[in-house]
């Protein structure tokens, strides 16, 4: 039985092992390689995507758990005003170094800002501490989240 879900607004049907993590369906079956493999155990956050708007670790989420759900990846997150603001802030502050973790960082940051337009430093720590970065871009990530927050709340 194919598994049906929506990815970045498009319906997809996957004929795959229902136990296979969503990550590999995205990367290999749908060739959406912006979502990264880092640890395979939900420890590093590189594979973060949104399930019905909430951040999940796709490396540890079986396909069976996302049947009928809406998935958003780094390739599609710019369609929302929050996603666009976050991506613009990331570019403005030139956040990435190697860049490998940044898709996951951006997805976690978008989920944070979608729920809380003006996060405190503690909110940022809580929302982002599951996303590892070996290049140490954390301070730029924090600054970019605040920049995106400012642009999202301007005039509000």
């Amino acid at each position: 039985m194919p598994i049906k879900l929506t990815v970045n607004g498009k319906p997809v049907s996957l004929d795959a092992d229902p136990e296979m993590p969503l990550l590999w369906a995205l990367r290999e079956d749908l060739q959406l390689t912006g979502t990264k493999f880092g640890c395979g155990m939900a420890l590093c956050g590189a594979c973060t995507v949104h399930l019905d708007g909430s951040p999940i670790r796709s490396c540890s989420t079986p396909l069976s758990a996302v049947a009928g759900k809406r998935i958003t990846t780094i390739e599609g997150v710019g369609a929302s005003s929050t996603g666009k603001a976050v991506q613009l802030a990331w570019v403005k502050l030139d956040v990435p170094q190697c860049g490998y973790c940044q898709s996951g960082q951006i997805m976690s940051a978008c989920a944070l800002l979608a729920g809380k337009k003006k996060p405190s430093d503690a909110d940022i720590d809580n929302a982002m501490s599951g996303n590892l970065c070996r290049c140490g871009t954390y301070n730029q990530i924090r600054a970019a989240i605040k920049d995106a927050s400012a642009s999202l709340t301007k005039g509000a």
Binding site: R27, E28, Q31, L32, T33, G34, T35, K36, F37, T73, I74, E75, G78, Q87, W90, V91, D94, V95, P96, G99, Y100, Q102, S103, I106
Partner: peptide, 27 residues
């Protein structure tokens, strides 16, 4: 000076080694 590789690293288009693919490959 701003990095030339930043935009691709914020929208999922940057290609890392792990993203390489050719038809018929095995993993």
């Amino acid at each position: 000076t701003r990095r030339l590789d930043t935009p691709a690293k914020t929208n999922g288009t940057a290609k890392f080694g792990i993203d390489a693919r050719v038809d018929g490959m095995l993993v």
